[in-house]
Amino acid sequence: MAGHSTWPEWIYVGVIVALMFWVGAEAWNVERLVEHVPADAEVIKVTGAQWYWQFEHEDGTKEVGTLHVEAGKAYKFEIHSIDVNHSFNIHDYVVLMDAIPGRVNTVWFAPDKAGEHDIQCREYCGLIHYNMRGKLVVEEPST
């Protein structure tokens, strides 16, 4: 339009575009790193069901609601659901992955020190979704 200069707008748009490039590049890089599963990660099978979590360790032991792991080890969760969608979440470790019937999704984490953390469901799954909670117990390394 006539009567005013447009260069401030070009600079402004340029700054936004540059910012978005920066956010995108950082996000791409970080996500690439966090998705790289260590080769020695132990597999834990996670099953979501209305309205509880069930865990199966590599050695075949099963737990319901509470999951025991050791500090200093890497774990890979293989997550699925037997009924509706859920989302497996350990917020303190930024572990989040949907549990979807008919699929197995994976995500990994490596707890660094002993302690207790909440496990919860973060995808709406009906009546008791609000209380589909569990506990993660990180124990001192056994050796």
Binding site: V13, E31, N105
Partner: peptide
């Protein structure tokens, strides 16, 4: 978080960020 591959996620992230300048232009 539905289990999309890294590539799929990247594509949709770029698509999302690409819409931001247009919204910013209105504010300007």
């Amino acid at each position: 978080a539905t289990g999309m591959t890294f590539t799929e996620k990247t594509v949709f992230m770029i698509g999302t960020l690409a819409a931001v300048p247009a919204s910013g232009m209105h504010v300007f």
